[in-house]
Nucleic acid binder design. Structure first.
Length: 423
RNA sequence: GGAGAGAUGGCCGAGUGGUCUAAGGCGCACGCCUGGAAAGUGUGUAUACGCCAAAAGCGUAUCAUGGGUUCGAAUCCCAUUCUCUCCGCCA
């Protein structure tokens, strides 16, 4: 949620920057500001009314104590009158605030000044490329075939037991999953992150805190009877640790790394993009989250970007980094780098990580603040990134490293799998 | 799931209808004292919104959350959430 004061003081600028995300917010912003004026007027009236009531109640108390109860009845009536007005004002205020919040909560984050204009992924900026795209031997196949040939991932079984998008990992496939999770976590810990094991379901307040609600309501699995959501990413429980928290400036940067299953309904997805591991309803991901002083969040974004790059380097995967254009960015982000690995058999780039700075957008929703040097309470900046999401990494590892003798496992990972050739 | 008890400021804890912007203690910050430190001592110590050009100041709200009773609620009533104890079930 954007900060109200900022909107009030930089209305034109906010509208301009939201236009980069292809959002015409002029009308919404206008309404928000009009509502804000009304809100303040109404609150002033209400506060004054309540102040009068409080004063009279105090007088009544004094009269009672002085034994002049009869003198108080006039005053009691006066408060009764004030109360009628107060009730109306309170209802009016609630209504205005609800309307304003509704508008505010639907407004996306403004993109950073460096974000390129654009509508779709086509307009994203490639900012870095690295690694060699392998020439695959004749007879090479995509990972969904390798999964069957080596009996390591069973999609059919997933269909039977649960449904599409919930595969079983078996034998060395399961071992490979576990190896990747441990590798990613260990690398995170080495980089100074504290490991967290979060709950896999969250309540409504947490969904709002990180911005999944109300924007992505239909994309999360929902457990009706307990009103809990299955997490689409560990970002949600981990960032919400800091909901309603006031940090000390000395605690920056807060660095957490968490492995979790992620659940996504992916409503509306179809076609060949969902083949094999390309898009699943349940998948594994290690997520890094940082909370930082507003003055340093962009340095932190670069640091996180470098961390993710180092992981891909160690996995010997060719990758590129793209800076997302306004139209392709998420609702909550101010600046996002996507990481894509080259999937040699599919002959395409697969997104494996998204590293974002949310500035104060999430912090404002969550009331995540800190005391600055002057003792003033201010909003923190939050950042997160996948480091990394497993399925597409597995797809690329299997495809890129297939040989006549088996699938080669990169050295950094072989320590964890216990084998350097998957046969 | 059943029965009972409870939820107060960063923490502990007092407070069962009016002076509660909540006693007392701990912690923390700053000062005094000291050669320095400890001890001692003094002062301060929440959040949000609003009024104000701004600071100071003032107003309103907040004692788990949401309603209600009352001129007046931390205190009484109702609902919800959470915690603890006992019983049941159970990885």
């Amino acid at each position: 949620m954007l900060e109200l004061n900022y909107i009030r003081e930089h209305t034109a600028e906010v509208a301009e920057r939201l236009a980069v995300k292809n959002i015409d917010a002029t009308e919404a912003l206008q309404s928000i500001i009009e509502l804000d004026t009304k809100r303040r007027e109404t609150q002033k009236e209400l506060d004054d009314n309540l102040a009068q009531s409080n004063n009279i109640a105090r007088e009544v108390g004094n009269l009672m104590k002085a034994g002049k109860a009869s003198d108080a009845s006039e005053l009691k009536n006066r408060v009764a009158e004030l109360k009628v007005i107060a009730k109306e004002l309170a209802e009016k205020l609630d209504f205005i605030v609800a309307e304003q919040t509704q508008l505010l909560i639907q407004l996306p984050n403004v993109p950073h000044a460096s974000v390129p204009k654009g509508k779709t992924a086509e307009d994203n900026q490639i900012v870095h490329s690295e690694g060699r795209m392998p020439e695959l031997p004749a007879g090479s196949v995509p990972h969904w075939d390798l999964a069957v040939n080596y009996d390591i991932i069973d999609f059919e079984l997933g269909n039977k037991v649960t449904g599409a998008g919930f595969p079983f990992y078996k034998g060395k496939g399961a071992r490979l999953q576990r190896a990747l999770i441990n590798f990613f976590l260990d690398e995170g810990i080495k980089a100074g992150y504290t490991e967290i094991q979060p709950p896999l379901v969250v309540n409504e307040a947490s969904g709002y805190g990180t911005g999944q609600l109300p924007d992505k309501d239909g994309q999360m699995y929902f457990c009706q009877i307990d009103r809990l959501y299955l997490i689409p990413t560990a970002e949600v429980p981990v960032t919400n640790i800091y909901r309603d928290v006031i940090l000390k400036a000395s605690q920056f940067p807060v660095k957490n790394v968490a492995y979790s299953n992620c659940f996504r309904r992916e409503a509306g997805s179809y076609g060949k993009d969902v083949r094999g591991l390309n898009r699943l309803h349940q998948f594994d991901k290690v997520e890094i989250v940082q909370i930082q002083h507003p003055d340093h969040s962009y340095e932190t974004l670069e640091e996180m970007r470098e961390h993710v790059a180092s992981l891909l380097r160690k996995l010997e995967l060719p990758f590129r980094i793209v800076k997302l254009c306004g139209g392709d960015m998420s609702f909550t982000s101010a600046l996002t780098y996507d990481f894509e690995v080259w999937s040699a058999a599919q002959q395409k780039w697969l997104e494996v990580s998204s590293v974002s700075n949310f500035e104060s957008f999430q912090a404002n929703r969550m009331k995540l603040r800190f005391k600055d040097e002057a003792g003033k309470t201010r909003l923190c900046h939050t950042l997160n990134g996948s480091a990394l999401a497993l399925p597409r990494i597995v797809a690329a590892l299997l495809e890129n490293n297939q040989t006549a003798n088996g699938i080669r496992i990169p050295a950094a990972l072989a320590t964890y799998t216990g084998f350097d050739l998957l046969t």
